[in-house]
Simulated assay, not measured.
Amino acid sequence: MNNNTNGIAAARQAHSTRCRQRVLAALEQAVHLGTEISISAIARRAGVDRSFLYRHRDLHAAVLLKAAEPTTASTRGPCVSRPSLVADLANAHDRITRLTRENAQLRQRLSEHLGEQVWRESGLGAPDDVDRLHRRVTELEQHTAEQHRQLSERDDELDAARAANRELMTRFNRPHPDGCNH
């Protein structure tokens, strides 16, 4: 029975060694081709279960290390890594949000402008020179108020002059104690 156990253990060890070699080959091939490097992708390419990579910590660490490195398959452009792609994606989402908000504001302004233009062109709206006319009305109202104030002052002066004139006429028409009229 000891022979049987040794044979099973040897077969299992050989199988594990072949799986390790397939994982390392799959990882090297993914690095060389610039394809996705993740636990799932490497396990799929090597034909092993993901749990195999989790049970062999050295293989798991090697996959994660290669996934974090920039890819070298493309020499024409800059090297990219998963973190740089995640950062680019986050920046793209922020830009989309910003542009969506700006687009909504511009649409609102355009809508208001077109609405005002249609209102004026329909003839239902006020003429363009309404503000000028309102300013002119205000100026004329102020001028009228000033004229009323000046007229009131002149009326007061005229009343005072009339009163003084009456008093003088009364004095002048009064007989003088010495008997002569002035």
Rank of each mutant, 00 (worst) to 15 (best):
V31K: 15
V63R: 03
I96Y: 11
S152N: 08
R109D: 07
A62D: 08
A41V: 01
E69M: 12
E121I: 08
L158N: 05
Q21Y: 03
F52L: 04
N91W: 11
E36G: 06
D131M: 07
R120C: 02
L24W: 00
G7F: 06
N173C: 09
N6M: 11
P177R: 10
A14G: 05
F172L: 15
L158Q: 07
L85H: 01
A161Q: 09
G34K: 04
Y54R: 08
A9R: 11
D155N: 12
D159K: 11
R171A: 06
A67M: 05
H182G: 05
G123H: 09
D58P: 05
A68T: 01
N4I: 12
G179E: 06
G34M: 08
D49P: 02
D58G: 00
R136G: 02
Q150E: 12
R109Y: 01
L24G: 00
A73D: 07
A9D: 10
D155T: 08
L53W: 01
D155C: 13
A163L: 13
H148W: 06
N181S: 12
L85I: 07
H56S: 01
A161W: 04
D49M: 05
T144G: 04
R55W: 05
F172A: 06
G7K: 15
D128N: 08
T138R: 15
E157S: 11
R76V: 09
E167P: 01
A25E: 12
T100V: 07
K66P: 01
H148A: 08
A160H: 10
L151E: 07
D155K: 08
R45G: 01
L65S: 12
T170C: 05
E112V: 15
L151G: 01
A87S: 09
Q29N: 09
N4E: 12
R107F: 02
H113S: 14
T71C: 13
R20H: 02
M1N: 06
C79R: 14
I39K: 02
T144I: 14
N165W: 05
V23L: 03
R149V: 07
R132D: 14
V86H: 04
N181W: 13
D129E: 15
A14Q: 14
L140G: 00
Q117P: 03
N6V: 04
R45C: 03
R18V: 09
R45Q: 15
S16R: 09
